[in-house]
């Protein structure tokens, strides 16, 4: 697989459809607004189609192809009119980019449309760096952070340097890498509920490496992983704050962290 970054293009007047993702929509709207800010700051015309719910990954990964296909079509219909589709999640982006085309390959009406949508769907942070050509963001943050590379973003989309690059551009951010940042956090969607003890063993190793990194804040680009790691850290009484990376990049990390008392 070749993950070479495409050259940044002229983004003026391009229309971006924000795929909010179900977890951000339901649990952490702040991340959605952080994405909006970052994309608008980058000069895009942004819209949030109302006919979106979920990318279909839970169904797809559970073997329920019919529902996965129906949801894929719903996303394609709602988003195919945009120049770009951007999501604050490597895992949902991976679903659209890497799996929609094969999922709908044998439906003549949909195959080409799936490929077209897949080709213009990007994960937020890599989109900002690789497509919009952003080198730095106007944000500030004071403290040490550590970054977890979520599996789909890393291995399906090759996202590794982009978040670190933008983090480095935020004055006050001190990145302390954790050991094995590329190892799964044990979430795996329904896996975390179906095999709770195994999931727990994996996330326990993860929270140990997070704690050992000695940073005050844990960042990642996927809500599922973040809720898993935050849930474990909180159960263990850890004071480490957990946030989506977009919150820090968009200067929106002032509110309560994930799993902390909310004021909204």
């Amino acid at each position: 697989m070749n993950f070479a970054s495409p050259t940044p293009k002229d983004t003026k007047g391009k229309r971006v459809g924000l795929f909010v993702t179900c977890l951000v929509d339901l649990f952490r709207p702040t991340v959605g607004f952080a994405a909006v800010k970052l994309l608008e700051d980058a000069g895009f015309e942004l819209e949030v189609p109302r006919d979106q719910t979920c990318c279909g990954q839970p169904a797809y990964n559970s073997g329920d192809k019919d529902d996965a296909k129906a949801l894929a079509k719903q996303v394609i219909k709602a988003f195919e009119g945009y120049d770009y589709i951007v999501a604050p999640s490597g895992s949902c982006t991976g679903m659209i980019r890497k799996h929609y085309p094969s999922l709908l390959a044998d439906e003549p009406e949909w195959a080409d449309r799936a490929v077209a949508v897949a080709g213009k769907t990007y994960e937020l942070v890599s989109f900002l760096v690789d497509i919009a050509g952003i080198e730095k963001v106007s944000s500030h943050f004071t403290g040490t952070v550590t970054y977890h590379d979520s599996c789909s973003g890393l291995r399906e989309l090759g996202i590794k340097d982009q978040p670190r690059k933008l983090l480095a551009s935020v004055p006050g951010v001190d990145l302390k890498e954790m050991k094995d940042s590329d190892v799964c956090c044990g979430f795996g969607g329904t896996f975390s509920v179906k095999y709770p003890d195994i999931s727990n063993a994996i996330v326990s190793k993860k929270t140990k490496t997070i704690t050992d990194a000695g940073a005050g804040t844990l960042l990642a680009g996927d809500m599922g992983c973040l809720m898993n790691m935050a849930g474990k850290l909180k159960r263990d009484g850890s004071a480490i704050q957990v946030r989506h990376i977009a919150e820090v990049l968009a200067d929106m990390a002032d509110g309560p962290a994930i799993g902390e008392k909310s004021g909204r």
């Binding site: 909010v20 951000v24 929509d25 339901l26 649990f27 952490r28 709207p29 702040t30 959605g32 607004f33 949030v48 109302r50 975390s192 509920v193 179906k194 095999y195 709770p196 003890d197 999931s199 727990n200 996330v203 809720m227 898993n228 935050a230 849930g231 474990k232 909180k234 159960r235 309560p256 994930i258 799993g259 902390e260 008392k261 909310s262 909204r264």
Partner: peptide, 29 residues
């Protein structure tokens, strides 16, 4: 902002807290 118990998600809350939602959904806001 944490849930120790969640219907149908006992597997999750056995070992982890469940971070509660912020409140309104993004679509609503």
């Amino acid at each position: 902002a944490l849930m120790r118990r969640l219907p149908a998600a006992g597997g999750w809350t056995k070992h982890r807290e469940f971070p509660a939602p912020e409140g309104k959904t993004f679509q609503q806001l």
